[in-house]
Design a protein around this nucleic acid. Structure first.
Length: 419
RNA sequence: GGUGGAGUCGCCUAGUGGCCGAGGGCGCACGCCUCGAAAGCGUGUGAGGGGGCAACCCCUCCGUGGGUUCAAAUCCCACCUCCACCGCCA
């Protein structure tokens, strides 16, 4: 969502962003609707002012004059009704279009679709096995650390149940992430996954990607795909004091995704599941591009250090305009090495949204000079399991099906070096 | 799930159909006073939208959405949230 006034005065910039992001949005139509809304607003204002003054006069008028006013009012009322209806329709149309306006992407983003993504750096050594490594499913089943067939009996496709040391290892990953984030002064917060529509619109999940979210129609609730949803919603409608910013959260929550766009893909194992656990980094900062850029770098750095701490090889991608989504200013994915896939696979996604989400969520702050501004938001994964758990298991397996525990996780596993 | 009470401009509060399209107090900002401060006094102090070079003007908003009325914070209906008690429950 962009500022109407910005769109009015920079239609070409917006059009270019729409093109670069491959979106379906008619900016000229938006401008026309915007103009119509303003015209109707002015007309309604005038009619309403008239209604007010005649109601005032009524109180002091004699009976003859009152009869006149009643008659005149009837006419005015029908005009008001018509204007309200027209304005209501136009406003709804405008809102619908505004919700689809993209953030202007940063100048350094590769232009194009997914194939234009650029690998900017890689870190770590891919493991060399002196034996034929198992994939995570084989390994988990060999050790009896998971139930797949039985879990699917209860919860359908993509379901899983972790058992024994796999559970402890998953928890260790989350504890590790929380400790690192707390060290960086992030506030740990556990948030609802079961949410209303409001925060989903706020994050930008709705209305564009409704079908990816589980709905519970009986209660008008939804299951959020990430803690980011609740975190954006938490401060929505507020005007924060500038000195409260930045707000830095380490949000934890179960995450739910329908994965309807990927039917049949990654159905095996833990790579793409409907329900998972995630620690999310989330920042609300002042509306300053440079500060936002600094946070973006920091969130990305934190995620990289988390993966480095685990000793996993990864690469960082600069995401192209057409692959980053409407709301993103900049996006970098971290892809971690999966031996069984023989390639890197997305495990983290770092995004700067500028004020795109804040506008949707009406999340503002009062600047030093008293001006009220929309804040900037950023988010990045810290740890998402079981996908990262699968990477950890595959990369750290031993010839006999053991799993070496990275040093950073040992404190959470009673000091054990091998599972 | 049931019963009762409540939701007003950052906070507290006035307000029961036109004089409240929102008064007061606190807080905050600025000014006076002071060597400085406190106290005191004075002035100002919500958000959104539209218009104007501008000072400024207009409209909307008293939890949300409907309704009654010439006119609604004020009356009616539904919903949401909060508080209390009862029931059930991890």
């Amino acid at each position: 969502m962009l500022d109407r006034r910005f769109i009015r005065s920079n239609p070409d910039v917006v059009k270019q962003a729409v093109r670069a992001k491959g979106l379906d949005l008619d900016v000229d139509e938006l401008l026309a609707v915007d103009q119509r809304v303003r015209k109707l607003t002015t007309e309604l204002d005038e009619a309403q002012a008239q209604r007010k003054s005649s109601a005032k006069e009524f109180a002091r008028a004699d009976e003859a004059r009152r009869a006149e006013l009643r008659a005149a009012h009837k006419e005015l009322e029908s005009r008001l009704g018509q204007l309200r209806e027209e304005l209501g329709e136009a406003s709804a149309q405008l809102q619908e279009l505004l919700l689809r306006t993209p953030t202007i992407p940063w100048a350094g983003a590769p232009v194009g679709d997914e194939s234009a993504n650029v690998t900017t750096r890689s870190w770590g050594e891919r493991p060399e096995f002196g034996f034929t490594p198992l994939d995570h499913v084989e390994l988990l089943e060999k050790r009896d650390w998971a139930e797949f067939a039985r879990a699917r009996k209860v919860a359908g496709e993509r379901a899983y149940a972790l058992k024994g040391p796999a559970v402890l290892l998953e928890r260790a990953l989350h504890s590790y992430a929380l400790d690192v984030l707390m060290e960086r002064q992030f506030t740990v917060i556990s948030v609802p996954s079961l949410v209303t529509e409001m925060p989903l619109v706020g994050t930008g999940q709705f209305p564009g990607h409704r079908e990816e979210t589980y709905a519970i129609p009986a209660d008008d609730l939804y299951l959020a795909g990430t803690a980011e949803v609740a975190l954006v919603g938490l401060h929505s409608g507020e005007i924060l004091d500038k000195n409260k910013l930045p707000i830095t959260y380490a949000g934890i929550s179960p995450c739910f995704r329908r994965e309807i766009g990927s039917a049949g893909r990654d159905v095996r194992g833990l790579l793409r599941v409907h329900q998972f656990e995630k620690v999310e980094q989330f920042v609300i900062c002042v509306a300053d591009d440079e500060e936002s850029d600094r946070w973006h770098a920091e969130l990305l750095d934190t995620a990289e250090r988390l993966v480095q701490g685990l000793g996993l090889a990864y690469q960082v991608l600069e995401i192209a305009t057409g692959d980053m989504g409407a709301g993103k200013y900049r996006m970098n994915d971290i892809e971690t090495w999966f031996p069984s896939l023989n390639h890197y696979r997305e495990t983290h996604s770092c995004s700067s949204l500028h004020d795109w989400q804040a506008r949707r969520a009406n999340l503002r702050y009062r600047d030093t000079d008293g001006t009220i501004r929309f804040a900037y938001t950023l988010n990045n994964t810290a740890i998402a399991t079981p996908r990262l758990l699968a990477a950890l298991i595959e990369n750290n397996q031993t010839a006999d099906g053991g799993v070496r525990v990275p040093e950073v996780l040992r404190p959470y596993l009673g000091g054990r070096e091998l599972l």
